[in-house]
Design a protein around this nucleic acid. Structure first.
Lengths: 228, 228
DNA sequence: CGCGGAATTGATTTGCGTCAACACACGTGG
DNA sequence: CCACGTGTGTTGACGCAAATCAATTCCGCG
C-alpha cells in the first residue's frame, strides 16, 4: 500500500502543474497545492467514491480514465462525465455541499491526485488565483454539461457520434483518422447511448465515409460529417 | 426607455440582497455590486441575449421567469434552464468565455438586474466573498445540470413529472397541493418533454392520485408518488 | 490454442416526438 | 350579450429512435 499512496514526486508535480486547473496558479499557491496532494494508483473498476459518502476531497487525474455516474433505483446507470488525464473532478463540492452526489469509478488502471477540500478552501481564501482557477473549471464543466443536455435533447445517435468525432478531429476538412483513447462501451455511456446503439450509429455513418476498425476511426470527408 | 432601464431603487436593492447569490457577500461588496446594477423591465417573449453575441453582462432575475435555450440547425429548441425570481444566469461566462453560449428569453413580463462582468471580475479580485458566492452559484448550477442529464437518461416522462412535484412539495407524506408558477409548456420544456408528452404524463399519474385543474395540482398521497 | 470480455447484429418493445383535430378559456369588438 | 379569434392544453393516430433481449462473432491475452 505504501507505493500506492504517496506524496507527489517530480514527475507527478510536473504533470499536475500542466493541467488547465493549475496552469494559472501563482507559484506559491501551486507549490502549496502540490505539497498537499496525495497520489494514488487504482486498478480498473475500482471505486473512488460513492454517492452519499461525505465529500472530504476532490481529485485530479494523472493517467487513465474515470467514470462519474449515478444509478437509478432499479440499478441502471447513467454516466455524467468521463474524465481523462489532466481533468479534475468533484471540485463542484468545494463550495457545493458536503456529500458526493455521484459515483466515481476507474474505467481502467488510473493514477490520481487527491486534494483535501478544506485545505483548498483555505488556500482560495488567501490567494485569488486559486479562486479564479476553481471558477474557470466550474464554468467549463457547467458549459459542457449544458452542451450535454442539449445534445441529448436535440440530436440523434448518429449526430452525437458525428459531433464527438468532429470535436476531436485535428483538421476541419478532408480525410482524418482518430484513435479512441478508451473502449467503445465507455464512449457509448458518455454519449448517453447503449453500446448497441453506438455500434448501430457507427454503421449508419459508414454511408458518410466513416470506417471503424477496432479503436481506429477513419473519416473520409470531415465536411460531409458536418452535414449530419 | 428611461423608466425601463434605471439604477436599483430601495425595493430592488432589498430584493437582490436576499438572493442566494448576494446573501453572503460582505457589506461593502454588496453595496458596490448593487450600485453597479442596471434594472430593466421586459415584456413576455422579449429576447435578453442571443447565442453567439459578445457576453458583456450577466443577470439576476427580480420577477418573472426566463428561459435559457439553444436551437438546433433545423430550428428545434431545447431548454437548458428555467430561471425564476432570485436566480442569476449567464454567470458561467464571468470566467468561462466571452460569448453567450445560449439564448435567453423572457417567458413572461420580467424585471431583471444587469451586471457588467468586468466590474464583477475586478470586485472578485479584491473581495473573496464575491468569489465564494460565484463558486457556490456555479457549483449549484453544475450539480443541478448534472441532475438534469441523469433524469433525462434514467427516467421516463411520468417519473420526471413525479420527481418535479416531489421536489416542490411542502410536506413529504399524505396529500398536498401545488400551484405551478408558470404555464405548462414551460414546465414541459424544462423537463425535456414536448407539451403533449407532459399532458400524457399527468394523465398517467391520475391512477396514482394526481389531479390537475389548470395550474393547480392535487396530490392524493405523496408517499405513493415516490414509488413511481 | 482456447478462453473471456467486448463488440456486432437481429428481433422486439417501448417511449416519446410529431401531426392533426378538437376543447377550453380569455379578451375584443360588433 | 353573443360571435369570434387567439393562445393554451388535451386527446388520438402514427412513426421513429433507441432500449432491451438474445445470439453470435470478434479480438486480446494468457
Amino acid at each position: 500500500m505504501l507505493d500506492r499512496n504517496h506524496r507527489a514526486n517530480h514527475r507527478e508535480r510536473s504533470l499536475l502543474s500542466k493541467t488547465g486547473f493549475m496552469r494559472a496558479l501563482s507559484p506559491s499557491a501551486l507549490a502549496r497545492l502540490l505539497d498537499s496532494a496525495h497520489i494514488t494508483a487504482l486498478p480498473a473498476r475500482a471505486t473512488i467514491f460513492r454517492e452519499g459518502e461525505p465529500a472530504m476531497a476532490f481529485y485530479a487525474l494523472l493517467s487513465g480514465y474515470v467514470r462519474l455516474y449515478r444509478v437509478s433505483r432499479d440499478g441502471r446507470q447513467a454516466d455524467i462525465r468521463i474524465c481523462g488525464p489532466g481533468d479534475i473532478f468533484a471540485e463542484c463540492l468545494i463550495y457545493g455541499g458536503d456529500i458526493y452526489r455521484f459515483n466515481a469509478q476507474a474505467a481502467e488502471n488510473v493514477s490520481l491526485a487527491r486534494f483535501d477540500m478544506q485545505d483548498v478552501r483555505e488556500l482560495a481564501e488567501q490567494d485569488p488565483t486559486v479562486s479564479k482557477a476553481i471558477m474557470a473549471t466550474l464554468s467549463d464543466h457547467l458549459l459542457s454539461t449544458m452542451d450535454c443536455v442539449v445534445n441529448d435533447r436535440l440530436h440523434t445517435a448518429p449526430q452525437r457520434v458525428a459531433d464527438y468525432l468532429l470535436t476531436r478531429c485535428p483538421s476541419d476538412n478532408g480525410p482524418a483518422s482518430i484513435r479512441l483513447p478508451y473502449q467503445k462501451s465507455l464512449l457509448a455511456g458518455m454519449l448517453g447511448l447503449a453500446p448497441e446503439a453506438l455500434s448501430r450509429a457507427f454503421s449508419s455513418l459508414r454511408r458518410t465515409g466513416v470506417t471503424v476498425r477496432g479503436r481506429v476511426i477513419q473519416i473520409g470527408d470531415v465536411e460531409a460529417l458536418k452535414e449530419i
